[in-house]
Amino acid sequence: MTKTPLQFRHNGRDVALFVDGGVNLLVALRELIGDMTPKFGCGQGGCGACSVLIDGELHLSCLTLAETVNGRSVETLDGLKEGPNLHPLQRAFMEQFAAQCGYCTPGMLMAAKALLDRNPSPTRAEVVEAISGNICRCTGYEPIINAILAAASGGRARA
């Protein structure tokens, strides 16, 4: 099968690879680059476990053709830490018990980051709206919402 060359920024680092036609960004990230932080949950855009940021905007990597990110910047949970330090959102998720099985957490954190990057002090309703595309089957969402609000109010000042 003909492979298509593809080059993009992955968490601030340039990567180049060849992909089969029709390969989605989730598979490219996990299987070709080896970044296992975006997760496969449904492959249909229904659960948000594969959420990543493309040029700062939230996208579902399972529904994004890998070829379409050529020349763009892709951020995943793998790039969220600031050096050895946790991002305020990561700290808040830990402190607020915002993960149980942890499988939705990478997508939740990316959705939360997309929100706080454009709206540093969201209301509760805005937080709920921002994570409405991400399914969590364990927590019942309350701790996640609280963690994002905590990161928005206190986390940034502390960071």
Binding site: M36, T37, D78, Q90, F93, M94, F97, A99, P106
Partner: peptide
């Protein structure tokens, strides 16, 4: 928890 929030928990 640290593994979960950093995406390093291995499924």
């Amino acid at each position: 928890m640290l593994g979960h929030v950093t995406g390093t928990s291995t499924y």
